[in-house]
Amino acid sequence: MATDVRKLADEIIDGRRLEEGENLSFLLSADLEELRQGADRIRKHFRGEKVDLCTIISGKEGRCSENCRFCAQSAHNHTGCEVHDLLDAEEVIAAARANQEEGVDRFAMVNSGRKPTEEEFEKIIGIYTRMRDELKIHLCCSLGFLTSEQFRRLKEAGVTSIHCNIETSLRNFPNVCTTHTFKDKIENIRRAQAEGLSVCSGGIIGMGETWQDRIDMAFTLRELGIRSIPVNSLMPIKGTPMELLPRLTEEDIIRTICIFRYINPEADIRLAGGRSLMADNGRSAFSSGASSSITGNMLTTSGSTIRQDREMLAELGRDTTPDWENRSRGCGEKRPQA
């Protein structure tokens, strides 16, 4: 007998949790519209109508030592991507201020490379200290593999969230990267968490993984206690080993978002790279369990402007007022930090 996914959604709202090792094949064959309805009910119950918007700036680009097979910035790939050293403080702070003025919740500097040099790290600390002192927007960063002391110093400088994708499942990870391991990723996340930082972690679908890999990834993120899960859809980039992979269908993307919502009911499921693979740049995803998004100009894939996203979400009845603005007005409780 087929599982009623709408009834299952109500059970999840009432406290049931899907378990790793449980037969979840019904999620792959369930009627997509019924699955979407269930995922959206779960989203509404646990995350409400607030949509968390974050933006990123490429602080350092290109020449990355890691051999991630999807990435334009890896020195192992031949993509002709832009290359630049760490941006100066004024440029980063100006971008953060502009995003704050457009009503974004969170701003992140994303750097290529396994980790910053000591000189780069000190410069980054200075940039974040200034943003902490001069701005209200929440601060995040993605800097690769850091020590506990470095995470502690970032927190002291005003960073509240660290981004570190696990990319895929444990089984599939060696097909994606071999210069670092899945275990390296997990240990990095746990170091950040141990220093009191929230972690934003998800991955990329469409890299040749199976549906079981996607399910396993969702469970790993739940086990890690991740509350902000970006779901990226691969946009194959010429010059990478994955350039000839077929592009995902919108149905596959939506079903994946739904599955992540059923497995991680309390997390923010964040619509990220590859939105252009969906009609209306992902509008339907926000009625399928997605509760947050990366917006603005992304690293390697185009996205909507902040204004376009806020207008679209307003049409859907969603609230994009940033948490820091509500807090500065003294309006109600602050939603849990992603």
Rank of each mutant, 00 (worst) to 15 (best):
2 A>T: 15
6 R>Y: 06
9 A>V: 01
9 A>F: 03
11 E>N: 05
13 I>E: 13
15 G>Q: 06
19 E>G: 02
23 N>C: 08
27 L>F: 14
29 S>G: 12
36 R>F: 06
40 D>F: 14
41 R>V: 12
46 F>E: 02
50 K>W: 14
50 K>E: 15
51 V>Y: 05
56 I>F: 15
56 I>D: 09
58 S>Q: 11
58 S>Y: 12
60 K>Y: 07
63 R>S: 08
63 R>V: 13
66 E>A: 06
68 C>E: 13
72 A>I: 03
72 A>L: 10
74 S>F: 06
77 N>A: 06
78 H>A: 02
79 T>L: 13
80 G>S: 08
80 G>L: 12
81 C>E: 10
81 C>T: 15
82 E>Y: 11
87 L>R: 08
100 Q>H: 07
101 E>I: 01
102 E>M: 08
106 R>A: 07
108 A>M: 10
109 M>G: 06
109 M>E: 03
109 M>P: 09
116 P>W: 03
116 P>F: 01
119 E>V: 15
122 E>F: 05
123 K>H: 13
123 K>L: 11
124 I>E: 14
125 I>L: 15
136 K>A: 08
138 H>V: 08
138 H>C: 03
139 L>S: 03
141 C>G: 06
142 S>T: 11
142 S>H: 07
143 L>D: 01
143 L>W: 12
147 T>F: 00
148 S>M: 09
148 S>D: 11
151 F>C: 07
153 R>L: 12
154 L>T: 01
158 G>T: 12
159 V>W: 13
166 I>Y: 04
170 L>F: 06
172 N>M: 11
173 F>L: 05
173 F>N: 07
174 P>A: 05
174 P>M: 05
178 T>V: 15
181 T>F: 14
182 F>N: 01
187 E>C: 05
188 N>V: 02
189 I>T: 10
190 R>C: 09
191 R>S: 11
191 R>F: 10
192 A>E: 03
194 A>T: 00
194 A>G: 14
198 S>T: 09
198 S>N: 11
199 V>M: 04
204 I>R: 12
206 G>M: 09
211 W>Y: 13
214 R>H: 05
216 D>C: 09
219 F>N: 03
222 R>E: 02
226 I>M: 05
227 R>M: 05
231 V>C: 06
233 S>V: 03
236 P>M: 00
236 P>H: 00
236 P>Q: 00
237 I>D: 03
241 P>G: 01
241 P>W: 02
245 L>S: 05
245 L>E: 04
250 E>Y: 02
252 D>I: 13
254 I>D: 00
255 R>L: 09
256 T>K: 03
256 T>I: 07
259 I>K: 08
259 I>A: 01
259 I>Q: 08
261 R>D: 01
267 A>S: 15
269 I>G: 08
273 G>I: 01
278 M>E: 11
279 A>C: 04
282 G>V: 07
283 R>G: 04
290 A>T: 12
292 S>M: 09
293 S>F: 01
294 I>Q: 03
296 G>D: 06
299 L>G: 04
299 L>K: 02
306 I>C: 08
308 Q>M: 15
308 Q>T: 09
309 D>T: 00
310 R>Y: 03
316 L>I: 10
317 G>A: 00
318 R>T: 05
320 T>M: 12
322 P>D: 03
322 P>F: 06
328 S>I: 05
330 G>F: 12
336 P>M: 08
